[in-house]
Design a protein around this nucleic acid. Structure first.
Lengths: 235, 235
DNA sequence: CCGCTGCTGTGGTCTAACCACACTGTAAGC
DNA sequence: GCTTACAGTGTGGTTAGACCACAGCAGCGG
């Protein structure tokens, strides 16, 4: 076993035993190195991995933001992992879209009609309309769109599904942004997407999960079909 | 931007541009450090992250197994990330099980009746029976069980779903193993699970995806209910 | 009372050295 | 000629030590 793995194992043990919790701070790198009888380099390699996994955050200086603190951001980890594997072209974008449809329709069907996240989703829709009136760029719209879909996913109350949803979206974010260039009429598309969003939200609020799921699936598949999944593979 | 992120970015770029592909080798650490005008330490930190992401594998010595080569193992990355977050107790095991049911029923419904992976799945079922006759431990059975379920997921032909399935399973592997201790009669349970496996496989081969999905969901939920999800949280 | 200034502890980076490992080529021995 | 032993080479793995930038804090001087 390599040295940094020993450090990782130790930290994971501390987490499992509850001696280290989210918000808590790891010992300083030099201290930890001395405690575990390893070099600071190895400690740092372990911390790098924890950072990449969305489990820790390192900050310089002193004060509340300094030191290495335990966080919990599964989305970051899954997202960058998926993005890297998309880069290796061993994860087809079409599979990601398909999985997104699967997770998101499940979430829509499962979302509670009175979930507080829906309020936020509604507010995001109004913002999107404002973006349309101000003739902002498609990027602004897409950023809000991401947050809207995440809010819906959160409303289902499953942290794993939410994290996976977010990471899928993150992994193909650059891809989706490029797709807008293929659209013949962005304003028309934005208007249609907005209308679909409202339909979806209404269905969830009416407790009609089945309809919401179908609408979401059609919404996502329709967008990618219109923009042309795969056509930018050579771009 | 920190130095190791610069290195990561460079490597990701090489991957995206196709200058680096799965099976290919990264430049030697010392060489890369010199090329990018950074220290070997920073290069190593970047490579550690790639390893953790399942995108690279480092090997000492010389020959085919040596050097840092590009691989593609999304399951490893997602699995360890999920496991770490389970350790922080920010990802409830119940959510993981729920997500597993979701993904696996979708895969069962979607699996092609003539997929080659089903042959492998059938062979695994025979092995499981052999394990039962030899009165092997539950661990042996569970190891085969994992491979069976993964084979079913692969039969659906979506790499993302397969990877997520595998990682979910990996992240709660230790948990599932401990659950067997809660079972009143392991042999009876194993026999029941085996029978359910054959039913599921038969449904898929008959092209009855809907039935297969329902059977899978009941199969998984039944197991965790019998073993008692959550009861080992204090163990 | 305010503002500056140095001290302290944090992570970030770099250099230089040594180790273990696995192959490769060469030379010695048969 | 063949086999064997061994030194050479290049790889990642690990370590020690130094220096930097940063952010807060205590103490000092105004």
């Amino acid at each position: 076993m390599r040295t940094h793995q020993l450090v990782l194992h130790w930290i994971e043990g501390q987490l499992s035993e509850g001696k280290l919790a989210v918000g808590g701070r790891l010992p300083a790198e030099r201290t930890l190195a001395e405690q575990l009888k390893v070099s600071r380099t190895s400690v740092r390699e372990a911390i790098r991995i924890l950072e990449a996994m969305g489990v820790a955050r390192a900050g310089v200086g002193s004060g509340p933001e300094a030191g290495t603190v335990v966080i919990s951001d599964p989305t970051a980890a899954l997202g960058s992992a998926l993005r890297l594997h998309v880069a290796t072209q061993h994860l087809p974008v079409s599979d990601i879209v398909e999985t997104r449809v699967l997770l998101e329709s499940w979430a829509a069907a499962r979302a509670k009609a009175d979930a507080p996240e829906l309020e936020q989703a509604a507010a995001l829709l109004d913002e999107m309309d404002a973006v349309g009136r101000a003739h902002k760029t498609a990027d602004d719209f897409l950023a809000l769109d991401v947050r809207f879909h995440l809010a819906l996913a959160d409303a289902a109350g499953n942290a794993v599904v939410s994290a996976m949803m977010g990471s899928l979206r993150e992994s193909i974010q650059g891809y989706a942004a490029r797709l807008t260039g293929h659209l013949p009429d962005w304003d028309a598309t934005a208007a249609r997407l907005g209308a679909e969003h409202r339909e979806i939200l209404a269905a969830i609020r009416n407790g009609d999960g089945e309809r919401a799921a179908k609408l979401v699936a059609a919404h996502i598949e329709g967008y990618y079909r219109e923009a042309g999944v795969g056509r930018t593979a050579e771009a």
